[in-house]
Amino acid sequence: MSRRIRPAVNPATSHSVITTKAQGCGWSLATSPADEDGTTEMALTRDAWQIIVAFRAGKACAAVVQYPGQSRPMTVLAISRLSRYLRGDREQMSALDCGQRVIVGDKAGTITDIVPDEDTKVRLVVSYDDGTNGDPFTTHVRAEEKVAVQQ
């Protein structure tokens, strides 16, 4: 019985695999030079989204997400979830912003997180005005209309 040889690095976290997957899904890339400890950063940008991935020795070691509507990265992203964000449906991921007011059925609330669920679906985390939370798909949500108040 022969043993299967395992790769030295997890292929899902290698610099080249992440680069190829990001480019194939419409993300633009910018890479910084290595700092004194050998860490490099890759900034992935698509529409109003930005993901910054740190690499050490060619392997992803950390990532942060800057959602649409935010001025700086706010969320640490598990490396195991990076692929899901890169492949996430572009139209649904860009349809709404964190902090935006939405209506889900008969409830109103504010988007607190945007999470790609699979290649074709994106979930929102919504904090409703009644104090509860929900996680509807973007296809079940509509933006709350702004009403001008006359004085």
Rank of each mutant, 00 (worst) to 15 (best):
E144S: 13
S2I: 12
R101Q: 09
F55H: 05
T112W: 07
R87W: 08
D119H: 11
A12S: 11
W49T: 01
T31F: 07
Y67N: 02
D117Y: 15
Y67I: 02
I5V: 15
I5F: 08
Q100T: 07
Q66L: 01
R72I: 00
F55L: 07
V126Y: 02
A48Y: 06
G109Y: 02
E144C: 10
K121T: 13
K121Y: 11
V76Y: 06
D129T: 10
A63Y: 00
D113T: 03
A78T: 00
T19R: 08
M42N: 06
C25Q: 15
M42R: 07
E41K: 15
Q100I: 12
T39W: 06
R90S: 11
T45V: 15
A62M: 01
Q150H: 13
Q151D: 14
P7K: 04
M74R: 09
R3K: 10
E41L: 08
A30R: 11
P68A: 05
M42P: 02
I51C: 10
S28Y: 09
A78H: 03
A148F: 12
V76W: 04
R87H: 12
P73S: 05
R87F: 10
T40E: 02
A78S: 07
H15K: 12
S83M: 15
S32D: 05
G58I: 03
A30V: 02
M42A: 09
P136L: 07
P136R: 02
R46G: 00
G134W: 00
M42V: 15
A34V: 09
F55N: 04
R101T: 08
Q50A: 03
G38W: 05
D135H: 13
Y128V: 10
C61E: 14
V149T: 15
V149L: 15
A95F: 00
S127L: 14
F137K: 05
A108V: 01
Q92R: 13
G105T: 03
R56W: 12
N10F: 04
V53A: 02
D130A: 00
L29Q: 08
V115D: 06
S16H: 11
I111T: 02
V104P: 06
D89T: 06
A54N: 05
V126D: 00
V64F: 07
A148Y: 10
I51D: 06
G105R: 06
Q70I: 02
A57S: 09
D37I: 15
E36W: 11
S83Y: 11
P136F: 03
H140I: 01
W49L: 03
R123H: 12
A62V: 01
Y128L: 12
T132H: 12
A30D: 08
L82A: 07
